[in-house]
Design a binder for these strands. Sequence first.
DNA 1: GATGAATGAGCATTCATTCAT
DNA 2: GATGAATGAATGCTCATTCAT
Lengths: 204, 204, 204, 204
Amino acid sequence: MSSLPPGVALAPKRQRGRDRVAAILEAATALFAEKSYEAATMTEVALRSGTAIGSLYRFFPTKEVLAVALLERYGERLLHALDRLIDRDPPLSVADAAAGLLEIVRCLRTERSVVLSLIDSGIAWQAGTGTLRTALIGRMGGLLSRLGGSPGAHDERAVILLHLVKAIFALPQDGPGPQSAGDVEAEAVLRLYLEHSARSAPHG
Amino acid sequence: MSSLPPGVALAPKRQRGRDRVAAILEAATALFAEKSYEAATMTEVALRSGTAIGSLYRFFPTKEVLAVALLERYGERLLHALDRLIDRDPPLSVADAAAGLLEIVRCLRTERSVVLSLIDSGIAWQAGTGTLRTALIGRMGGLLSRLGGSPGAHDERAVILLHLVKAIFALPQDGPGPQSAGDVEAEAVLRLYLEHSARSAPHG
Amino acid sequence: MSSLPPGVALAPKRQRGRDRVAAILEAATALFAEKSYEAATMTEVALRSGTAIGSLYRFFPTKEVLAVALLERYGERLLHALDRLIDRDPPLSVADAAAGLLEIVRCLRTERSVVLSLIDSGIAWQAGTGTLRTALIGRMGGLLSRLGGSPGAHDERAVILLHLVKAIFALPQDGPGPQSAGDVEAEAVLRLYLEHSARSAPHG
Amino acid sequence: MSSLPPGVALAPKRQRGRDRVAAILEAATALFAEKSYEAATMTEVALRSGTAIGSLYRFFPTKEVLAVALLERYGERLLHALDRLIDRDPPLSVADAAAGLLEIVRCLRTERSVVLSLIDSGIAWQAGTGTLRTALIGRMGGLLSRLGGSPGAHDERAVILLHLVKAIFALPQDGPGPQSAGDVEAEAVLRLYLEHSARSAPHG
DNA sequence: GATGAATGAGCATTCATTCAT
DNA sequence: GATGAATGAATGCTCATTCAT
């Protein structure tokens, strides 16, 4: 009962512990975003979250475990948002899909740096279930399917679409205003490519 | 420690030195690509290039200087290739431009990761000229200008275009074949966006 | 690396830490005295104090911080002793002052080398107050004032007096006996110079 | 004929070599003075003297050998100057002696830092013949003898006198003017102590 | 369970010195 | 004999991680 498989974050049982964990995740999010996975230090995470370094290690026995926890947290949000978009009831138009993707990106932009820095640091996510990357490509494929077009090229297109979304994530964010010039162009890129895909050949 | 200008790589004066420098650059290229600027260590570069750590530092007095050298090496290639594309004589069509960009990406793909990892590490380059990033955005702007369209949005579009190119750089490279499915789609993205930009409003 | 104020020695919060700090200071005293600030190495300090290098850096995040701690420790003793001498109640005679200075030197002789090597390394001390050197010169001036004499030359004389005291500090110490021949002569030097200063011109 | 005892500077046979050596010694003087024996580097000495590092090592096979050469050079000058003072023909008055000592110090002041930094770095000088220190103490004793006073205390007094001279060497030098305020006071210290010694008891 | 001290491998960098050309 | 490249031990310092209290 005492030797859990290492590599998993310990789930805290009491309220106090859950608050701790939340504070830690928040601090880590900020630090990984400001610096990078490698440049951020566990000591700093502890400091910023008001946790003793020893306590930090109780919940996250490894820096990598902490990173994975973050990846899961934001990855799940991202996946859920994508699922909601794909399954939206009145069938999606291309314009809706482009706007929806951009909206997702904009909502998660605050935490985007974490995701980007973690995706690119090669940290594995849910070893068994496949990577975040795989899951995201799956969703992109789903989106393309809903919009129609020749299914033959969907696999490559999903990859490209994912890269486009990542590129938009990486875009410097100009002000929180409703629609910056950059956003307009970003949405254009998405729309153009989705149109292109939907147009590619009639279903079946 | 103080009288030697520490900002520039020392040029080797003998053949032996020139070989060593070449070996170092090669090893560093590989390592910065595999890991990242921050994760790669000078000791590893030395080891991988068969150089004593002291010799490494003779030519590259700082990790950053080494990175800058790499940036210049690949950055210059990239910029030259872009310049050739922009200034090609029979004025470019949108399709030519897209194909040209993709071609450039394909040719430099081997060294792509280095460039990517160094661009994003924000290392300054050519003291006066600003970052590689800045230079690249300038080229993208130049390309958009040649293709026409409302010049008002060129700044934002140049940024977007750079991100698209970066995304394509980052694409997993499938075989060295002439035109993989991924390449076709990548070219489509570029063409669509360049068309969109060129169409945006009549010149003048 | 960035959020922690790196300018001050971290105060240990537990007994174990306080012991360690004491051991470190002792070892550093010895080493800085035997060699010099520059020649002594942190690794050696760690070794000699039975501390892991990491622990040493926990409390003294920089070699300079360690030096400053030493400087404060011994500098404060020295300054307090000088203050007690200057403010002694029955106004000082020249002979008393000379004897007093010598006595101070003799008491602090064990740690003299550290002070000497640190004074001359120009390490800043107590951010606002300037160097130990400055503080000492101030005290020497105070002593000269109490003994009378033309105040016009006190600044230069304070500097000279400090150098005399330093010279006596540097004297090879012959046995712990009450008054060695060297001490007699050293006291003579001080007395002669203080007399000379006091005689220089009537007050006002 | 090829394996000379290590530790001695190789005497150059040709003019070219003698110039080299002179340049090296000059550069080393400046550097040791500006920084310190430990902080100055052989590479810097080579650079500053326009010598290749390999050539520097031909003449001075060790950093310490270089230091010893400097020590000898300045030590000899100092000793000669002292000898001239001691043996000056119309027998010396105390005032003359004080003025003479100060004059010597002032003349060698440019190079004082080297001597000070080398004396205090514990580098041995002429292993067989004794240290510079010993030689200097001898001269101080000689000077005291010429001025009269009880010879019993001359040994201790010579040591003290040497320390006084060293202290004056270390004095911050204010302008090259003929007699700065500091110099006046420094001469006073010397005169007072020499008088005290000469007065101590009638000869014999 | 929380706290913070302890640990030590590792990192970027320096520099005296040697050696091949 | 001159040159400069090569060498590697050593330095100041960092940081993930463990352990005693």
